[in-house]
């Protein structure tokens, strides 16, 4: 499903690449967690996979899409049709209520399915919140809305960047569980970037990002 080969990304004024010959293979429906120290490049890797940024070298293949796309409209279509993204800071549209926020991606793709949306909202426990505005929700509620939005249009891949980063411990567990279970139910490939061990261990394939590459195990003595 996801094949990354020898990916390199270096920011201006940095002495070393933050992503350095990274390689990754993810099968369809697999859940992968990526941990690492602050500033190690976890969010950068997700941004590259989402097409928000372009790598300096290497290839990313997600399904039949090769990133970066030659044409911008292909990249837009990829994000619209194939991808679901969950952000650390929720990134809901402040001007739309919960229902419209969630439905937005489905409407964008043209695959509105109200019963399906209801099901997702029930699963995530946010059905009663449908008319509320994001500013009236707690952090956990907002993140669950964001997860529902990322899934409602049946993407092939969901990228979650620190989905529990702004939540307390109890809520983190609930949100993480919801995310993993619903992705498993929908057989959606899931990549979760997190610094939380509890969240990372729920993935089928936990990984570590260190010195710009991915590893299956932490370094000895590392946190």
């Amino acid at each position: 499903m996801i094949v990354i080969k020898e990916l390199v990304k270096q920011y201006p004024h940095a002495t070393t690449p933050i992503i350095n010959q990274l390689t990754l293979n993810v099968v369809k429906g697999e859940s992968v967690s990526i941990r690492g120290a602050s500033g190690c490049g976890k969010s950068t890797l997700l941004a590259l996979m989402a097409g928000f940024e372009e790598a300096d070298a290497g290839t990313i293949q997600i399904g039949n899409i090769a990133l970066p796309c030659d044409r911008e409209k292909d990249a837009d279509a990829f994000r619209r049709d194939q991808l679901g993204v969950v952000f650390q800071s929720f990134n809901l549209l402040d001007c739309l209520n919960v229902w419209d926020n969630i439905a937005f991606t489905a409407r964008l793709k043209g695959v509105v399915d109200a019963p399906y949306q209801e099901h997702i909202m029930d699963t995530l426990g946010i059905a009663p919140l449908r008319q509320k505005m994001p500013s009236a929700l707690s952090g956990g509620e907002q993140q669950r809305v964001a997860i529902a939005r990322a899934l409602v249009h049946r993407p092939s891949v969901v990228l979650a960047d620190e989905p529990t980063g702004n939540l307390d411990e109890t809520t983190s567990d609930q949100v993480a569980q919801a995310l993993y279970s619903i992705c498993a139910e929908l057989a959606t490939t899931l990549i979760v970037v997190t610094h939380s061990n509890e969240v990372a261990q729920q993935a089928q394939t936990p990984m570590w990002l260190r010195h710009g590459t991915l590893h299956a195990a932490p370094v000895a003595g590392g946190r």
């Binding site: 837009d76 619209r80 809901l92 549209l93 964008l108």
Partner: peptide
């Protein structure tokens, strides 16, 4: 908001 829309796949 504009950034979010673009991230969600709205074309330029």
């Amino acid at each position: 908001q504009m950034v979010r829309l673009r991230q969600l796949g709205v074309g330029r």
